[in-house]
């Protein structure tokens, strides 16, 4: 299975900021490694930057599970790029 790495902004609001969404994701997808790079969490909204690594299908399913729990998942836009 191909390995993948995804970098995402997660936004927690509308109730899911009070739920242990990441813990639930980690329990369901124990082979997906995630690394918190930045976080800003308030009472009504939380924003986190994370890197996810693992089998492509696992990572995609883990992200879909976060969305299912009400977390907004946005891709981090590009690191360095090559012109063409």
């Amino acid at each position: 299975m191909p390995k993948t790495e995804k970098r995402c902004w997660l936004t927690f609001e509308g109730g899911c900021q009070d739920e242990p969404c990441l813990w639930r994701m980690a329990r369901r997808f124990p082979d997906v490694v995630f690394d918190v790079r930045q976080a800003s969490v308030g009472k009504a909204i939380g924003i986190m930057a994370l890197k996810f690594e693992g089998e492509q299908t696992d990572v995609e399913a883990a992200l879909a599970y976060l969305v299912e729990m009400g977390v907004r998942v946005d891709p981090v836009q590009g690191g360095s790029m090559v012109a063409g």
Partner: peptide
């Protein structure tokens, strides 16, 4: 803008360290 890590001028939008 977040962690002050510096990079040379290149087509880059975010920091590899903190994604800022």
């Amino acid at each position: 803008k977040e962690c002050d890590h510096e990079y040379p001028i290149e087509p880059r939008t975010v920091c590899d360290e903190c994604f800022g």
